[in-house]
Design a binder for these strands. Structure first.
Lengths: 144, 144
DNA sequence: CTCTATGCAAAATATTTGCAAGGGA
DNA sequence: TCCCTTGCAAATATTTTGCATAGAG
């Protein structure tokens, strides 16, 4: 297992890739790309701290002071449905979000609420089918 | 990987083991064993459907009509802190609970909200230490 | 007798919804 | 133009808290 400390933010390159994917998927589903929506996705893609909805809202508010919390909620839900983001449910308090595309796992430090990205070693392969259904999302959550 | 369909409830034997453990831990921490608390734990231990707080409340209410939802919340939180129960955070809606003692994983069917217990094959061993901290709880969550 | 638990009500959080107006493709 | 989106406010959950009383050990 490789642990990605990610003290720094996502690289510009990977942010660009995520944004391109986001735009492509939006076109595919004929969903309009509003500036607010792009700002919400970019905030998520640029962050490495697995922000809460509230934090995304506060960040986007700097650029769009009139944005509503409901808009952020609606967009995040849409990202999840489109497979553009992961949700990391937390044992206490609101969920955290992650725009990383590859399936990976998270370690949640319950002491301070920080979330670490983990890459599973390639020898650990998660099942793709369970109970005859395709695995849409897999999270390995460790509570420390 | 072995999938435990668990259409039936937990066996009487395993329920007895869980209840004994619960009572021993309570004595250890000098926490009074009230009838309500025992009923809440028993409800959890006997169920195999990973009930929500609300469902536990409704079940215990049959035996203790005056029980309060707050009491169920308080007790469930205490069980988590004592390691007597697992919490399974859900992508939508309230978390589910499980009194199973061994670390195992869960598959969440997002279509109907049902939760399956999974036993990880022994060849897949989860790390016990991450970032220098002991893993208190590990969940492998699959969203189907 | 002491300490935690219970039950009730109110408060605090968190998330969703309805709807009129705005805006992207 | 056609939908989807936005922003606001109100409505819904959901969970926590304070406090007086009850009860376990």
């Amino acid at each position: 297992m490789i642990i990605n400390h990610e003290r720094m933010n996502a690289t510009e390159h990977s942010v660009k890739l995520r944004l391109e994917n986001f735009k492509q998927v939006s076109r595919e589903y004929k969903l309009p790309l509003t500036p607010q929506k792009v700002a919400i996705f970019r905030t998520l893609a640029e962050s490495s701290s697995h922000p809460r909805v509230q934090e995304i809202y506060e960040h986007v508010k700097m650029e769009f002071p009139s944005i509503s919390l409901a808009t952020v909620y609606k967009n995040i839900k849409q990202f999840l449905a489109l497979g553009l983001a992961f949700e990391i449910p937390m044992p206490d308090g609101p969920a955290r979000y992650d725009a990383k595309l590859e399936i990976h796992s998270h370690a949640v430090d319950t002491a301070d609420g920080s979330v670490y990205d983990l890459e599973l070693a390639p020898t650990i392969h998660l099942p793709e089918i369970i109970m005859g259904k395709k695995v849409k999302q897999a999270h390995v959550l460790y509570y420390l």
